[in-house]
């Protein structure tokens, strides 16, 4: 449970961090360390160098003017405790509650969870349904990557080795209904299946937009176009539509299985949690101030 030898760098600016990442091919970014350090302790990860970005000024912070901007190294506990996020982006707050435990959230960063890209990560799925975009910097400059294009597979993202996730931008979601749920054996564990959902309805109460993202079911978080298609045009809160969305949610998705959890079980659990979350979404007061 002791890591192998590694070099440690502590840059104080983003360009400096990128410089170190570029010049050290087998390096890893260290943010909150809540996933990376255990992997290193178990010697499942043996990076040659760590680039500790936690002291870079301006890389953390919460800005709720208009849309939401989160600096990549913002602690999960700071997001959880932010009253404006809780009011305007309650989906984020209710998901962060399920990310680890108070002790890990105190160190773990919002951007770290996203860049780590564990397929079971709650926040990745939330980013998909909130249509987030990620500010990325590399040697060639800055670019923006949509959440949809970011998650490629197990611990694999669109980020190049020498690129750094610097910020997360989430649009204002006034008018959206939302839901979140996961099937988990113990609170705070890796889910067996989970879903984040956001829905919008017209004045007649018919669903006009549906975004359903599942996590912990495949090698990356996935939007369920099948479930979304079943919901659009149905009455918000229609239990039969929710059942149907659950039933088809994993159609076309290659579902993961392992020695402890079968794909069959994950499909059943996903169907159940999608159904419940979609039903519950209809009763979650719409986000933002217009509904207050």
């Amino acid at each position: 449970m002791k890591p192998a030898k590694f070099d440690y760098y502590r840059p104080y600016s983003v360009p400096e961090a990128i410089e170190v990442l570029s010049s050290h091919p087998d390096s890893k970014v260290l943010a909150g360390g809540q996933s990376l350090i255990p992997l290193m302790n178990m010697r499942l990860a043996t990076p040659a160098a760590l680039v500790d970005i936690s002291r870079i000024e301006g890389l953390s912070g919460i800005d709720t003017n208009g849309g939401l901007r989160l600096g990549a190294t913002t602690r999960q506990s700071d997001v959880l405790g932010n009253a404006v996020i809780q009011q305007r982006w309650p989906l984020i707050t209710s998901a962060v509650v399920h990310v680890g435990h108070p002790a890990t959230r105190a160190r773990g960063t919002f951007g770290g969870s996203i860049a780590h890209a564990d397929p079971a990560a709650e926040l990745s799925a939330v980013m998909l349904v909130l249509d987030a975009s990620f500010g990325v910097q590399g040697p060639a400059g800055s670019r923006s990557v949509s959440a949809e294009g970011f998650f490629l597979g197990h611990y694999t993202t669109e980020l190049a080795e020498d690129e750094l996730l610097v910020e997360i931008k989430i649009p204002d979601i006034s008018g959206w209904y939302w839901g979140f749920g996961e099937i988990v054996r113990r609170h705070g564990d890796y889910a067996l299946a989970g879903v984040a959902a956001s829905l919008r309805a017209d004045e007649a109460g018919l669903v006009t937009d549906a975004r359903i993202a599942l996590f912990a079911v495949a090698h990356r978080p996935v939007r369920s176009s099948a479930a979304e298609a079943r919901l659009v045009g149905t009455r918000l809160g229609d239990p039969a539509a929710a059942d149907e969305a659950g039933r088809v949610a994993l159609d076309g998705v290659e579902v993961a299985d392992d020695s402890f959890v079968s794909a069959t079980y994950r499909r059943e659990a996903a169907a159940s949690v999608v159904k419940r979350v979609v039903r519950e979404a209809a009763t979650n007061s719409r986000s933002g101030t217009d509904g207050q």
Partner: peptide, 16 residues
């Protein structure tokens, strides 16, 4: 042996 960590070997915490 596939239960060699506390991700796979689950014991109850206060929430259970």
């Amino acid at each position: 042996f596939i239960s060699g960590n506390l991700i796979n070997y689950l014991y109850p915490s206060t929430t259970e």
